[in-house]
C-alpha cells in the first residue's frame, strides 16, 4: 500500500504522522499480525531483562525462551511481509495461503527445537 495519505503538510511531529499513517492505511489483518509481533517483542524483552538483571542460570532454558520469541517474531514478520499486498510484486511464487502454510511449518520446527532445548 503506497503511503498516499501522508502529506508533507503533516504535523511537525513525525512520529505522530507515522502512527496516523499506519492506522489509516494498514488493513486489520496486518494489524492483527502486528499486535502479535508487539506481544512477542515484549515477551522477549522481559526475558532478556530477567537474564541481565537476575540470572542466566538455566542458560539453555533462557535461550530456548528467548529464541522462541525471536524465532516466532521473525517468522511472523516474514508472514506479514509475504501477505502484505504492497509486497505482492516481490513474492510472485508465494501466495498468502502458502505463506501461512510455511509459517505453520516453520513454527512447528521452531517449537520442536525449543522444547528440545528447554531441558
Amino acid at each position: 500500500m503506497p503511503p498516499k495519505s501522508t502529506s508533507s503538510s503533516a504535523p511537525s511531529n513525525s512520529v505522530q504522522s507515522l502512527l496516523k499513517s499506519y492506522t489509516d492505511t494498514t488493513s486489520p489483518r496486518l494489524k492483527l499480525i502486528d499486535t502479535l509481533l508487539l506481544f512477542l517483542m515484549l515477551s522477549g524483552i522481559i526475558q532478556f531483562v530477567y537474564c541481565i538483571l537476575v540470572t542466566n542460570f538455566p542458560f539453555n532454558a533462557f535461550l530456548a525462551g528467548f529464541g522462541s520469541c525471536v524465532g516466532q517474531f521473525v517468522l511472523t514478520a516474514s508472514l506479514r511481509s509475504q501477505v502484505n499486498p504492497a509486497n505482492r510484486a516481490e513474492f510472485k511464487e508465494v501466495s498468502p495461503e502458502r505463506a501461512f502454510a510455511e509459517f505453520a511449518l516453520g513454527s512447528i520446527v521452531l517449537h520442536f527445537f525449543v522444547y528440545n532445548f528447554l531441558g
Binding site: Q82, R98, G106
Partner: peptide, 9 residues
Amino acid sequence: KTGSALFGT
C-alpha cells in the same frame, strides 16, 4: 529467490 520461509526452514 522465492522469498519462501519454507525453504528458509
